[in-house]
């Protein structure tokens, strides 16, 4: 469980996260959405401790993460753009992380196999396409059997086969009652994988409710249409506030 309360983050003058309050429950799968620069990635990085918030608290499984790091062993993180040292090989990356993480000694290698990484263990990271890097990121995120998954644009750049494998894996983990947070621009993926919608707009939580309720509130049958409606609303709001100002 992750509870975020009164979270604020500024980059210089830019107020990126404005008083965010969200609680992510175990067993729920969240779709985190919002236009570009709405603060999704900053929020994720705050949860991971990579971005240090200006104020507010983040509790992961009940504990404040400030100046902590061990809690990250409960989180499988798949970054939007996986960055890796150029000159080391896929196999080395995997074994290095395994080696460094003494907290777990059983490895879930489903995705390593399903993504076909076993055949490419000797390829240096620098030579890989974006998609293959994504595969490595995915494999790492799922390797240590965490309670929480944070997947930032997981399917971007993946080939259809890999997307299928990943979705299958996510569904499997979801069935185990784990907490999953996914950001994506591909609404069909979210429709399949998530049950709860969070919409961020201009650094604020614009919408936070289950997808069922979202559909009924917007009066739309389809997930994608209800999200489209949500986007319209949020833009109207922004226009209003700017006129008021």
């Amino acid at each position: 469980m992750i509870s975020i309360s009164s979270l604020n983050k500024k980059f210089g003058k830019l107020h990126v996260l404005k008083d965010i309050n969200i609680t992510f429950e175990m067993g729920v799968s969240y779709a985190m959405m919002g236009p570009n620069a709405s603060g999704k990635t900053t929020l994720i990085k705050s949860i991971l401790g990579m971005v240090i918030p200006n104020s507010g608290t983040i509790l992961v499984n009940g504990e404040d993460i400030k100046d902590q790091w061990l809690y990250r062993s409960n989180i499988g993180y798949m970054p939007q753009i996986g960055k890796y040292p150029e000159n080391i090989k896929i196999g080395q990356v995997l074994s290095m992380i395994q080696n460094l993480r003494k907290d777990k000694n059983q490895y879930d290698t489903d995705l390593v196999e399903d993504f076909g990484l076993l055949q490419m263990l000797n390829k240096p990271m620098g030579t890989l396409s974006g998609g293959t890097r994504q595969k490595v990121s995915g494999a790492l995120a799922f390797m240590f059997d965490p309670d929480i998954y944070i997947l930032d644009e997981p399917t971007a750049g993946l080939d259809p086969l890999a997307v299928e494998a990943l979705k299958k894996k996510i569904a499997k983990e979801r069935a185990k009652g784990k907490l999953i947070i996914i950001t994506s621009h591909i609404l069909s993926d979210l429709d399949e994988l998530t049950s709860h919608a969070i919409y961020l707009s201009d650094g604020e939580v614009f919408y936070n409710n289950s997808i069922e309720i979202l559909k009924s509130e917007t009066g739309e049958e389809k997930f994608s249409s209800s999200i489209a409606r949500l986007m319209e609303w949020s833009e109207e709001k922004i226009k209003k506030t700017s006129i008021e100002l």
């Binding site: 991971l48 401790g49 990579m50 062993s73 996986g82 960055k83 990356v93 460094l100 993480r101």
Partner: peptide, 16 residues
């Protein structure tokens, strides 16, 4: 040059 490496490490349960 090792920014990526540090980023990768920091997403793991490793002390800053």
């Amino acid at each position: 040059n090792s920014y990526e490496f540090m980023e990768l490490m920091l997403s793991q349960p490793i002390n800053r």
